[in-house]
């Protein structure tokens, strides 16, 4: 009897100690969580204050002006709504140029990314010792924002679609190369070995052994990039690389009186982005689902 009581007391003691240590742990976790949250909030608030200070116009003054410019544009566009279809037709070639820049750069960079990814994947690489070199060069290509290359090339080649195309292609090749290489790492090596046993050379092994396995994922990533590149090519146009962005800058420089042009360009750009967004997401779903099935 006494034994049992003793055992019970001991058990209660263990439970108590477990409970206190658990509570202490919870306390510590809460403290750390709270501290992290506090640091995060301080960073956000102070960052916001700094950004607000260094901005030309303040946040609270500007907040109620957000609607002004769109309202002006919309009002003027509505006034001249009869001209809109004509303007859309007028800017259509610029839109085609923007899409062309995105398409060509995606095609080129998909080809370059394909080769780079195979060269930098362990197990598939042609020269295994060169893997770090290719990886580093892809990192650098990925890190260079398009606008940097575009601005430098505009200085050399003059304005137009080619600088934008090259700039986007270089950045995209790095980005796609990394994504492609992650896919290729998971590829089954048996077909490659089988092909090697028949005496196939490296390019034949890759073309017939690896590509069929990774093609759906590669295509899906390339489509995603195409979508991103349309946006990028519109932005680069704004700094002088042709296409819709260039027309937008010109229309904006005119100010009131030409807002109908700006509105037409906004409509074209918005429509294009949504259109290609939908198409690419539908095809990407089909590509990745088709693989799982």
């Amino acid at each position: 009897m006494t034994d049992a009581t003793f055992a019970g007391a001991q058990a209660r003691q263990t439970v108590d100690s477990i409970q206190t240590s658990y509570m202490a742990q919870v306390q510590r976790r809460r403290l750390y969580g709270g501290l992290t949250l506090l640091i995060f909030i301080v960073l956000m608030v102070s960052g916001f204050t700094v950004a607000d200070d260094r901005n030309a116009g303040g946040f609270w003054d500007g907040l109620h002006q957000i609607g002004d410019y769109p309202a002006e544009v919309l009002a003027e566009a509505w006034e001249k709504r009869a001209d809109l279809p004509a303007l859309i037709v007028k800017f259509f070639p610029a839109l085609v140029e923007t899409i062309n820049i995105a398409a060509v750069s995606t095609l080129i960079s998909a080809a370059a990314g394909l080769i780079l990814s195979l060269l930098s994947t362990r197990g598939l690489a042609r020269w295994p010792r060169m893997i770090p070199v290719f990886r580093r060069s892809m990192d650098i290509m990925r890190a260079v924002p398009e606008i940097v290359i575009a601005l430098v090339l505009i200085f050399v080649l003059g304005g137009g679609p080619v600088p934008a195309m090259i700039a986007i292609a270089i950045h995209t090749a790095g980005a796609l190369g990394k994504m492609f290489s992650e896919v290729a790492e998971n590829a089954d090596l048996k077909p490659v070995e089988g092909l090697a046993s028949t005496g196939a050379n490296w390019s034949q092994r890759m073309w017939l052994g690896v590509l069929p396995q990774v093609a759906p994922n590669y295509l899906s990533y390339a489509l995603l990039r195409f979508e991103i590149n349309i946006r990028a090519s519109a932005i680069l146009g704004f700094v002088g690389a042709g296409g819709l962005g260039y027309e937008l800058r010109n229309a904006m420089a005119w100010g009131p009186g030409r807002f109908d042009e700006a509105a037409a360009i906004f409509i074209l750009l918005f429509g294009t982005i949504v259109f290609f967004d939908q198409i690419s997401s539908r095809y990407r779903n089909r590509l990745t689902e088709g693989q799982n099935a």
Binding site: A51, N55, A56, G62, Q65, Y69, R231, L248, L269
Partner: peptide
């Protein structure tokens, strides 16, 4: 908000807030 690209948002917001990091 995704379809109205960052370019257009930048242009519109720059009108309200002026140039700078906040925009």
């Amino acid at each position: 908000v995704r379809g109205v690209d960052a370019l257009i948002w930048t242009v519109v917001l720059a009108r309200a807030f002026g140039p700078g990091p906040l925009t």
